[in-house]
Amino acid sequence: MPGEKSASVEEIDVSAARKIAAGHRAQGNSLVTVLQDVQTEYGYLSGEVLEAVAEEMEVPFSQAYGLATFYSSFSLQPRGKHHICVCMGTACHVRGAANILEKLERDLGISSGETSEDLKHSLESVNCLGACALGPVVVVNDAYHGKVSSRDVDKIVADLE
């Protein structure tokens, strides 16, 4: 899903990213750590931000981009106001996680890995959240929902406002 280089029309202020990178660099921390904190700050990693971080860390832009696309917790696109994460671990799988994900895709009108155009929702599947006893698990903005059934999905979606 290599998107357009600039994800939004507005200029992105990269000064916060530079500051985070400089701070970590002084402590000898790695580029992965920097990108994590930068993503927390911006919600995602835009091309401008990646370029600024690379410059500050004195690594090639291509390496920063390579990292951002290798690791699945990095997002090159803005995430929705409500970020919904469906666990696809084995325990969840044998209890029907695939059906839950599909229902969410249908109900939200977006595929896994996408963000709705109005930036309200984004949907993601994760390979095991380590909450296996609760499977199937859906995490909405950091809140865990366990033993989710199709009917629970209706409730979860209805509560997203």
Binding site: P2, V59, P60, F61, S62, Y65, T69, F70
Partner: peptide, 10 residues
């Protein structure tokens, strides 16, 4: 040491 290309995605 130009760093123009790298692996992308996985």
């Amino acid at each position: 040491k130009a760093g123009a290309v790298y692996f992308t995605y996985r």
